[in-house]
């Protein structure tokens, strides 16, 4: 049985794989050089971190009663922003799903709305809306909603594309109106996704809303930004713990709701 050779890759493939590694390495090295980063600060980092923690300890728990209002505002920005987003995203999802969109123009419109909404970060939207509505929770809420429309519409639209059309046909055969087809044929099929996506987005929005205050768009970020600005590190650490607690609770609620609906 001599003479039988086997190789996973032939010469061409080996050359291609080698070239891929070389290109990847070149990109990494090139980027590093171009950024002109210095490792000088890395050596002093442990000292700096220790120093910062020293100044943060013990957290100023006494400040927290002042944080309750802004924290509630943060959650409310996320709640109202998400509800608004889901209401606005529903028709967008309907027109951006291939099987329900009325025509090619509406399909394209749906895709454009989704892309525009998703390609701009919440903070950038917030900067725009602070200019339009002035500083405060309204700007943050609208920014949250606008950013979330694309996310919710995209996932719901994909869910609509997956539905079993037989169920719609069954309702259609009894003489139902287009609205009734939607309510009986489509909505029950996407309901778990609707709840799951909404709650998941709310959870993301709670986290995003904690820093909206950095650009003056309301929530706990206002206090956090002021505390950092005035080097009140003990207040900062207390606030960070409070934010952590809120985020953990919202993640728990989100996970529970998604498990519950089927």
């Amino acid at each position: 049985m001599a003479g039988r050779e086997w190789a996973r890759f032939d010469a061409r493939e080996r050359l291609f794989r080698l070239a891929s590694v070389v290109v990847a390495a070149a990109v990494v090295i090139g980027s590093w050089e171009w950024l002109d980063m210095s490792l000088r600060y890395v050596t002093s980092a442990p000292l700096q971190v220790g120093d910062l923690f020293g100044r943060m300890y013990p957290p100023d728990w006494g400040y927290l009663p002042n944080a309750v209002g802004p924290l509630a505002e943060t959650i409310q920005i996320a709640v109202v922003g998400t509800i608004g987003a889901v209401l606005l995203a529903a028709p967008v999802a309907y027109i951006s799903a291939e099987n329900t969109t009325p025509n090619r123009a509406t399909y394209a419109l749906g895709k454009v709305i989704v892309t525009v909404s998703r390609s701009v970060h919440t903070i950038v939207w917030a900067l725009l809306f602070v200019v339009m509505f002035g500083p405060g929770a309204l700007a943050g809420t609208v920014a949250t909603a606008v950013r979330s429309i694309g996310f919710v519409a995209k996932l719901l639209g994909e869910e609509i594309e997956e539905i079993d059309f037989g169920q719609v046909e069954g309702v259609r055969a009894s003489g139902a109106s287009p609205f009734q087809l939607l309510v009986y044929g489509i909505v029950p099929q996407i309901k778990p996704a609707l709840v799951g996506v909404s709650v998941y987005r709310w959870d993301i929005n709670v986290r995003a809303a904690t820093i909206l205050g950095f650009v003056g768009a309301g929530g706990i970020g206002v206090q956090l930004f002021q505390a950092i600005d005035s080097f009140a590190w003990r207040t900062v650490s207390a606030l960070l713990f409070a934010i952590l607690a809120v985020v953990l609770v919202s993640e728990g609620v989100s996970a529970y709701a998604r498990r519950k609906v089927r």
Binding site: Q167, S174, A176, Q189
Partner: peptide, 26 residues
């Protein structure tokens, strides 16, 4: 025109009563 389907074509996540009543949607 009442119609019965091979794959039933019922609304899976709704109740029996909701499905039967969906025949009255018109």
């Amino acid at each position: 025109i009442g119609m019965v389907f091979q794959e039933y074509n019922l609304i899976e996540r709704l109740t029996v009563m909701e499905n039967v009543l969906s025949g009255r949607l018109g």
